[in-house]
Design a protein around this nucleic acid. Structure first.
Length: 420
RNA sequence: GGGGGAAUGUCCCGAGCGGCAAAGGGGGCGGACUGUAAAUCCGCUGGCUAUGCCUUCGUAGGUUCGAGUCCUACUUCCCCCA
């Protein structure tokens, strides 16, 4: 692999996005000529994408920014009806078509934060593979596409092999996923001149299948580029928090919580994440990375603010940073903490502490039983006072001068209960 | 087609003579220590209208005062013979 000549691959290489490519020089040349039309596919299995998807979105961002080519975001409206078996032990429950459509609508919004859509040469477009997949004729499809796939070879792919080795069922439906994804690649080539598919390293097999199919059907040379699967320095899968995945949609994870997620990055990951998840120039990253000991916290704040600004906007990011500063560095009550409203009447009658923390109000803990357990281990606080009695009751007199009650779970998670 | 084995706490792996909310790990969460980090140590890790009640051991039945444990059928997987 030679040193990249294109700005696009230069950036991707320097910032650590590349895990594997099918033909580095070929991609490099196309990028240099600005004809690297590239797609990434996104399943519609949930109502929001999460940080795991961010890497590929950032790659599309750089693709556009460096003028290497046109980004295409492919919504898997069709493939999600089949289900990708990659990396999963069990079949996902079949989603209804309505659920998939709802998810798709809900997911769409985040892309425009990172890439510009439009009609121009390097403007991004969004397409949905339901458009062509749902119209396929089975027999025709088998004859045109199916004959190019060897089952012997398909069985050797990790996504399939894992299931077989683990003794878990793999339905014929799911077995077809890789064929459909391969077909997508070729179809996108025909429609938009797409020549590159990017994705996580777990998608390598699926992408290469598309390249093979293209060659057999006589398309131009297609390419693959994958990014590494993200793990933290201590080996944990990235993107999980107490309350689940780190969602990108603001209504599922507030900008403040998103900021907190990045703020809590392990020391050893800071530089890597600055390169991957912010657009800060590399010399600035180097400067931040050189900080030692407790000073690394400055780098983490920069990471949090920059990453949040990309997704939720500069203003929301600054606000989150300020809220965190007040809460953690001054120990003051930040009015901008996540807030849950409660009827004053409820407080007049008295609201059980457990209930206040539980799923009906602050949602800091998932159940009353969990709240009870946390009281035992001293994890709950009301107005910075540790809760000791699980039968305690919150009353109007617990309201601070600002008219709120501050509920804390652990040291990092806070919610304000505001009487209305 | 015949024979033998397996499925356990809705995160994973895994023990479980008929009295079991079910050993032990990993992961996760909380506490201590720190720097809102890592490592380490301690605690917790089904739900609820809570000294009690309800739901859990592949699925559906049965035996029993009582079933994760015994029986029958079914599902999926592994091994051996054909």
């Amino acid at each position: 692999m030679n040193a990249p000549r294109s700005e696009f691959l230069k950036v991707l290489t320097e910032r650590g996005y590349i895990h594997q490519t099918s033909d580095f020089d070929g991609i490099d040349t196309a990028a240099l000529e600005g004809r690297l039309t590239t797609y990434v596919g996104y399943d519609c299995t949930g109502p929001s994408l999460h940080v795991g998807h961010l890497l590929s979105i950032m790659m599309l961002h750089w693709l556009q920014k460096t003028g290497a080519g046109k980004p295409i975001t492919l919504m898997g409206g069709g493939t999600t009806r089949v289900g990708d078996p990659s990396g999963k032990d069990e079949s996902r429950k079949l989603l209804t078509v309505e659920q998939i459509e709802d998810n798709k609508t809900s997911i769409k919004g985040v892309f425009s934060r990172f890439i510009a859509f439009g009609e121009g040469k390097t403007d991004a477009v969004m397409v949905d593979n339901a458009e062509w997949l749902t119209k396929l004729n089975y027999i025709e499809f088998l004859r045109d596409v199916g004959r190019h796939f060897s089952v012997n070879r398909m069985l050797s792919f990790d996504s399939v092999k894992l299931r077989l080795e683990r003794e878990h069922e793999l339905s014929f439906l799911e077995f077809n996923y890789m064929i459909l994804q391969a077909y997508d690649f070729v179809e996108l080539h025909k429609r938009y001149g797409t020549i590159l598919q990017m994705g996580g390293s777990d998608q390598w097999g699926n992408i290469v299948n598309g390249i093979d199919l293209g060659r057999r059907q006589g398309t131009a040379q297609l390419y693959a580029l994958t990014c590494p699967l993200l793990t933290t320095a201590s080996g944990a899968k990235m993107g999980k928090t107490a309350s689940g995945a780190v969602w990108l949609n603001a209504d599922m994870l507030s900008p403040y919580d998103y900021w907190q997620f990045w703020r809590n990055t392990e020391d050893a990951d800071v530089v890597r994440f600055l390169k991957l998840f912010t657009t800060l120039p590399l010399d600035e990253v180097d400067r931040l990375g050189a900080l030692q000991g407790a000073e690394i916290n400055e780098a983490k704040k920069a990471l949090a603010t920059e990453a949040t600004a990309l997704l939720h906007g500069r203003e929301a990011a600054e606000l989150a940073a300020e809220t965190a500063r007040k809460t953690f560095e001054q120990g003051a009550l930040a009015e901008t903490l996540p807030t849950v409203e409660i009827a004053s009447g409820q407080l007049e009658e008295g609201l059980g502490v457990l209930a206040a923390f539980g799923p009906d109000y602050a949602k800091l803990v998932p159940s009353m039983s969990e709240a009870r357990r946390q009281v035992k281990s001293g994890g709950l606080k009301v107005n910075d006072q540790t809760v000791t009695d699980d039968r305690g009751v919150l009353k109007l007199s617990d309201l601070t001068a600002e008219g709120v009650i501050k509920l804390s779970f652990g040291k990092k998670k806070h919610v304000l209960l505001r009487a209305v």
